[in-house]
Each structure stands twice: as structure tokens, then as C-alpha cells.
Amino acid sequence: MNSGSMRPSVVILAGLVIGLALGFAYTWFYLPAPRDQIAASQLPAADKDRYRALAALAFAANGDRVRAEARLQRLGEDRLSAVIDAQAQNAAQAGSAAEARALADLAAALRSPQTAGGPTQSLPGIVTVTTAPARRAVTATPPPAFLPFASPTPPVAERLVFRLTSSDAVCDPALPQGLLQVYVVDADGEQLPGVRVSVTAEGGQTDVFYTGLAADMGPGYADFLMSPQARYTVTVGDAGEPATGILAPVCERPGGDPYMGGIRTRFRP
């Protein structure tokens, strides 16, 4: 085709169309527009979950509640402890035990009133824990200085040998049938949050959950729904003595109808 025979409008239109195609293709394939940077509060839900989990793991590592709280405030969420409680429960159900424990500890720490120790004092190489620990202290010994590169040691509560001190049948039709209630307390009777509870059915299936995830029931509370006629073994903490033969009782309604009741248990070192 001879451009000399083309009308000016066709030439201009052809130039525009070709230019548009070239420009669009270039940006599409080679030069994408820079994406806007976003704040942590604008993260999608999945990334917010990752951020919270990371904040909890960092809190488990350094015990710095002030810093953990400041980090979580970047997400711009209300009712922090409730959100983290829910995430801890999800993590426990997904089998992420360490993450669930860290989240439960962080939620418990956020719920507890701040100690007068003030924010963590940071020194090069050494971080000294001066804020409240995630779990309540079970001895009068103050929390030790935390060496960032020391090998991790299990939290105090996890090293205690918890034993079953009471087990009571609960016949309350208002409660879910087969409800196993677990209360974990320290030597002084104070409830302990974030303690691992494992329940193993006769068939061998084990469920793991943590105390303190039901905020309205107390920091040392956890529960589990038992199946009818199944016997369970409950172990609290990493070194706890297994409580065997736990079986949901048969209760009677006022009219005489039987139903599966629950059990209230209490564990302490």
C-alpha cells in the first residue's frame, strides 16, 4: 500500500491505533505499573493471620508484651485478645501446636493487666524481660534474663507435672452433652492460661488444645466434647500424669429421660 495515497485521517488513526497497541503491550508485558504500598492494616485476612502468628512467635521468643502489642496495633484491629484467641483455636485445630500455644500465650498476656515493670529494656545482644510473662509465675523466682541465642527452654507451666485432683460428674441439661471441662491451676490455685491439654480416646485418636481460649470461662479453662461410651485419657502439660478412664456419665432429666452428662476436672501440679 502506498501511504501517499492514504487520506490524512487514516494516517493519524493508524498511528494512534499502532501507538496504543505498542504502549499497552509494553506496560502489560514489560513495565507493569508500580503497585501501591499498603499498611499492615490493609493486608488481606490471610496475611493478617500470618502477621499475628509471627508477632505471637516473636513474643514467645522475647517476652516483650509492649512490643507485641505495638505490632498488633499496626493491624488496626479492636478486641485484640479475642481475635488472637480465635486464631489460636484455628491453629490448634489445624495442628499447628507451637503457633497455637504462642497465640494463646499472647492473648492471655494481652488480657492480663500490665505490670509496673514498664517496657522491655533492650541492650545490645541481651534482652531483659521486665514485663509480665505470658503465663503467671508459679514460683517467686523472677523471670530470668533472656539470651536471644540460647537454646529455647519450655515455658515453666509446661514443665510442671500436673495431676488430676478432682473429677466431678456434671448433670446440667443446659450444657452440651459429653462436655469435658478442664481447669488447670498452679500450686497456689491460680488458673494457668496457654497450657497444653491432650485428650486421647480409647481408639487412639488424640486431640490437643490449650487453656485460656474461652475468655469467659477463665484463663485456665479448656473443654472438649466426649463421645458416648468412650473412655478418655487426659494429660495436661508436657510432663503431666495421664488421667485415665474418663467417661461421660449418664444423667437423668427431671422426667426420667437419660442423657449424656459432662465432667468437670481440675489439674494442678
Binding site: S3, L20, G23, F24, T27
Partner: peptide, 26 residues
């Protein structure tokens, strides 16, 4: 003259194409 208009319109088209590509990026 026509070639000049072609170049000018091509340049305008490229600029519009770049803008459209970036606008469509999100």
C-alpha cells in the same frame, strides 16, 4: 507531512497505551 502526522499520532498512541496499561494494572 503525512509521515510527520503519523509519527505524532503514533507518539500520542503510545502515551495513551502506556497510561491505559498502567490504569489496567490493578
Amino acid at each position: 507531512g503525512r509521515f510527520l502526522w503519523f509519527l505524532i499520532s503514533l507518539a500520542i498512541g503510545i502515551v495513551l497505551g502506556l497510561a491505559a496499561g498502567w490504569a489496567a494494572a490493578p
